[in-house]
Simulated scan of single mutants.
Amino acid sequence: MSTRSFVRNFKMVTGTTPAQWILRQRLDRARVLLETTDVGMDTIAERCGFGSSVTMRQNFAATFATSPTSYRRQFRVTG
């Protein structure tokens, strides 16, 4: 299958491009780590496949309209 056909079929099935799908998976994993761990932003960025914590923060804020730190404060699961 050509790249173009793959992207077209992927989008038809998922409603998004492969790159957008991967970004969403990374951001969803980051949200889980922010909610359930105390590890730092650099570690979360690395575990989620971002090139840097800056890249993660920019994408997180653009998607969720809040910073990862603010998200953690609001949604951290305690005890």
Rank of each mutant, 00 (worst) to 15 (best):
Q74L: 11
R4L: 12
N9R: 15
V32C: 13
D38Y: 08
D38M: 08
S2L: 08
R8H: 14
G15Q: 06
Q74W: 10
T43C: 01
G49I: 04
R76D: 01
T55F: 07
G15C: 04
F50C: 04
F60E: 04
R72K: 09
M41G: 02
V32K: 15
M12Q: 15
D28R: 13
R73H: 02
T55C: 08
F64T: 05
F60V: 03
R26Y: 01
A19N: 07
R57N: 10
L23A: 10
A62H: 02
T63F: 00
V77W: 08
E46Q: 15
S53R: 10
F60G: 01
A45E: 00
A19Y: 08
T66D: 12
F75Y: 15
F6Y: 14
S5N: 14
G15E: 07
P68F: 00
L34Y: 00
F64C: 07
Q74Y: 09
S70K: 07
T14Y: 13
V7T: 05
A19L: 12
F50Q: 06
T55I: 11
N9P: 12
V7K: 09
F6L: 11
I22V: 11
N59F: 03
S53W: 03
M12Y: 15
S53G: 01
R29N: 09
C48T: 02
P18H: 01
M56H: 01
T36M: 15
S53A: 04
G49W: 04
T37F: 02
T63P: 03
Q74C: 05
V32M: 15
D28M: 10
S5F: 12
T69V: 08
R24N: 05
G15M: 11
E35A: 04
W21M: 11
S70L: 09
T16M: 12
T78L: 06
G51R: 14
Q25P: 06
G51A: 10
A30G: 01
P18A: 00
T78F: 02
L27C: 03
F75I: 13
V7E: 06
D42V: 10
S67W: 03
Q74S: 07
G15I: 06
R73D: 02
P68M: 04
V32G: 07
N59G: 03
K11N: 11
A30C: 01
P68A: 00
R57V: 07
G79R: 06
V13C: 12
V7S: 02
W21F: 11
M41H: 11
L27W: 03
V39K: 14
T17K: 07
R72W: 01
T37Q: 03
T66W: 13
S70Y: 04
T69P: 02
R76N: 04
T69S: 05
S67T: 05
I22W: 12
T3H: 15
G79C: 03
R24Y: 07
